[in-house]
């Protein structure tokens, strides 16, 4: 008998792509997507069930569909689109609680795969350079998504304790980036001028959406219980990232950073929570060694390659192209050399 998979938050980009990948797998017998909105992409044999995971009826869906694998992706990073922070928190925290409660009741469930974020490590000057999975945040997360993610993980852990027969895989993703995915960070990068905090240059780490979908697929198909940091190799500095993409940046002095962010938020340009602001000050890097050794997954894209792929697809153009820059460089070098020679010869003649 093939695998029967339930995916929450099916309207999301990653969930849609995962469903599409699983559809093509002959060993996957049945895929059902649960969500408030319809899937954002065309799915062939995935059944869509309009349901709210906050509703106790979810347990019915789990039982009637007889799924053995639950992929929980209905965890929102931003309140945009659901009508505010309160709603977002409800979906993230209460939703996870209900869903895991339903899973606990559903006898057939053997595997739970959940999305989390490296944001649970916080961002603080007291942080070690790299976070391994055992390390805890040095700064108590107080805001938004980070706080939700920490609570969601807590539920996941207690669920794993209560149902030891279920393999729980928790994937802590670095910032998603790629040609199609939309996150607060991608919107930030596409601002006409990108404001940065003056005197701070955080280390960023990315995971390409293709890699994210692939590791989710492997988590569903294989057996990988545990917590894993998921990130592409290497680290990119914010200043370097903007230069790589050719984005103009404007440094903002620290006291103005928070007011500016809230202005941008109010104008609904980019929805940037306070915890993400700290990320843009102090940065954060997770150690993805366990992903490579224990999970056996190698990300195809490095952080830098993922970023460049994003820039290419969004048709980001440098103000001055690289070729132009190289031409100028050659011209200038030739000019300087000629000038030098002339002066040298002139001096010699006299």
């Amino acid at each position: 008998m093939g695998q029967r998979v339930l995916i929450t938050g099916i309207s999301g980009h990653l969930a849609g792509r995962l469903a599409r990948t699983l559809e093509q797998d002959p060993e996957v017998e049945y895929v059902v997507g649960v969500g408030l909105d319809e899937p954002s992409m065309d799915l062939e044999r995935t059944e869509f069930v309009r349901a709210d995971i906050r509703n106790p009826l979810t347990v019915k869906v789990l039982q009637t569909t007889e799924v053995d694998t639950v992929v929980h992706l209905h965890i929102l990073a931003t309140p945009a689109g659901v009508g505010g922070r309160t709603q977002m928190k409800e979906i993230n925290v209460i939703g996870t609680m209900q869903l895991l409660g339903a899973c606990q009741r559903a006898e057939r469930v053997r595997k739970v795969v959940m999305k989390s974020t490296t944001a649970v490590y916080g961002a603080d000057p007291r942080d070690p350079a790299l976070f391994t999975e055992e390390m805890a945040s040095r700064s108590e997360p107080r805001h938004g998504y980070t706080k939700d993610a920490v609570e969601v993980e807590r539920y996941a852990r207690s669920f794993a304790r209560r149902r030891p027969d279920v393999a729980v895989t928790l994937l802590r993703f670095a910032n998603f980036i790629g040609p199609e995915i939309e996150t607060p960070l991608t919107r930030y990068f596409t601002l006409p001028v990108v404001p940065t905090a003056m005197g701070y240059d955080p280390r960023l780490q990315f995971v390409h959406e293709d890699d994210a979908v692939e590791i989710l697929r492997r988590a569903v198909r294989g057996d990988h219980p545990g917590i894993y940091n998921v990130a592409g190799d290497g680290v990119v500095l914010l200043s370097q990232a903007l230069r790589l993409m050719g984005r103009p940046r404007v440094p903002v002095v620290l006291p103005l950073v928070a007011p500016m962010a809230s202005a941008v938020r109010r104008l609904r340009v980019v929805d940037f929570a306070t915890d993400q602001l700290r990320y843009l000050l102090y940065g954060r890097v997770a150690d993805a060694t366990r992903m490579k050794t224990r999970f056996g997954f190698e990300a195809r894209f490095t952080s830098k390659a993922a970023l460049l792929d994003f820039a290419r697809e969004r048709r980001m153009r440098r103000l001055i192209s690289e070729r132009q820059l190289e031409d100028w460089e050659r011209d200038l070098a030739a000019f300087l050399r000629r000038k030098n020679q002339e002066r040298f010869e002139q001096a010699g003649r006299r």
Binding site: A129, L130, D201, R203, G234, V235, V236, L237, S239, Q240, A241, L242, R243, L244, G246, G283, V285, D287, K304, R318, E322, L325, E326, E329
Partner: peptide, 16 residues
């Protein structure tokens, strides 16, 4: 060197 700095074509380690 200036071109590499301008285009971000350099590598840093995990510690920055």
């Amino acid at each position: 060197f200036l071109r590499r700095r301008l285009t971000g074509e350099y590598d840093i380690d995990a510690f920055g």
